[in-house]
Design a protein around this nucleic acid. Structure first.
Lengths: 251, 251
DNA sequence: CGTACGCTTGATACCTTTCAAGATAGGTGG
DNA sequence: CCACCTATCTTGAAAGGTATCAAGCGTACG
């Protein structure tokens, strides 16, 4: 169950040039004053490269570091007591991994690479220490954590009352937006995760996701070819994603 | 929509004796050294008293403070663009309100009292400033925030794949545990929120919640009388709450 | 005393899961 | 380079769980 496979090692090197990081505009450290960026660079351990399927974190291992995605994408999966497999998050470049581990002191799920990806390691103790001297860093970090609380809280409550059609639209619009902010086309992108992971993440089955995609295609909303998504009618897809609930009634 | 009703005012008084607070063992500030507790007391504005239905926070208003529940309970509700009413959280004594507002700088939902309740106000700017001098306070706060991220992330993903029977069991077990930690009986308690709010929170309808409670009663799991809950067979209820998923199949 | 709100109960429709094969595609080894 | 294997995606038919719609019922409070 907890296959103790190759857990990656970071290079011993102890300096990163954050100022040259392509993810920096998205990273919560982005646009910090130069001096402080440099200090961060002293802390951050750079550039583990992961291949598809490589684990970055094993569920239950002690929390030591946050990880910042520089390129590629990863998923977080939690296995519950009854051997249930739950996809709890996807991480794209510029996003922070491990925010949910600080509280318990252990990582609540395994994090696995969905494709070739690179990450930076941010040892938490040293990060906290740096925070003592850089209030702005603290503020950014709190902001980041808080946004996470809010979006999980609201996003999930929303999904709970939604049909498959709306859930998937919501997911695709969100992904599209995430790609757009990374400088990619919001209309054509490649979803690195398999259908099964999407279904699991949305609380649906693979079959339902598949059928829903077919319906979208029939309605001229979008087309998919394997992992490739091509959105044809974004306005309508967005309207669908925002659609209130199940059927008629208002609560 | 945003009924500008009586928004409560705090007394001008500027000192709170945290050390005498009954919620202190549950509050994230609990068990801090005495000096620091005292400093907190200088910041915290005490004791607004709310009656059932009184709003503490109006959705969209600028974020200025966190609130700590001293007694009673409250709910957070978010109204979406399409006038959909979503219950996104319940707060019991010792819990922090407003964690999800830090990021956006606005409160993402209204917070309304479910019964007579008292809260302390914790102005955020001053709290941050105090954090500069008290690293332990920062750590506690981060821990608190992180736990929130984790439980929302996992808890919700779980609910998404659950039947009404399991969702409600999960909710009742969680509430029972929260009461237990507050020194009340975990077997007999009073849920201050109406059925409709529970249903909404769990992504169900009132009818389904009602019918499910009847089924529990028929099975000898628990009985309800209005807001009163009396759990008869906790082990079985817990097993039900942990039950894996919809029907047979494993993911 | 009545009105309102919350809770119950019943019948029906519908979405999604479940079960079961089949079709594709990517990767491996002969 | 092709055959095979496995994981992934597709399609179909049936069952099941909830939402929906519609009344009743109780109870609290003005």
């Amino acid at each position: 169950m907890t296959s103790r496979s190759k857990v990656l090692r970071f290079s011993g090197q102890h300096t990163v040039d954050c100022s040259s990081c392509r993810s920096s505009p998205l990273c919560f450290t982005g646009r910090l004053p130069v001096d402080e960026i440099a200090e961060l660079g002293d802390i951050i351990r750079p550039l583990a490269t992961l291949n598809k399927g490589d684990p970055l974190i094993l569920q239950g291992s002690p929390f030591t570091s946050l990880f910042m995605v520089r390129s590629g994408s990863l998923k977080q999966v939690t296995t519950t007591g009854s051997d249930e497999y739950l996809v709890t998050a996807f991480f794209l470049s510029g996003e922070l991994i491990g925010l949910d581990a600080i509280g318990e002191g252990r990582y609540p799920g395994s994090v696995v690479s969905l494709e070739t990806a690179t990450v930076c390691e941010l040892p938490f103790a040293e990060f906290l220490e740096l925070g003592t001297r850089v209030p702005e860093l603290r503020r950014r970090f709190l902001r980041n954590l808080s946004l996470e609380v809010g979006s999980e809280r609201l996003g999930m409550r929303l999904l709970l009352r939604r049909t498959a059609e709306v859930r998937l639209a919501y997911f695709l619009v969100a992904m599209s937006e995430r790609f757009r902010r990374r400088g990619y086309s919001p209309y054509r992108f490649r979803l690195a995760m398999p259908r099964g992971d999407i279904a699991n993440y949305l609380g649906l089955t693979v079959e339902t996701v598949g059928r829903t995609l077919v319906r979208y295609r029939d309605q001229g909303l979008l087309v998919t070819r394997g992992p490739e998504v091509h959105i044809l009618d974004m306005p309508r897809l967005e309207r669908l994603a925002e659609a209130s609930g199940r059927r008629r009634r208002e609560a």
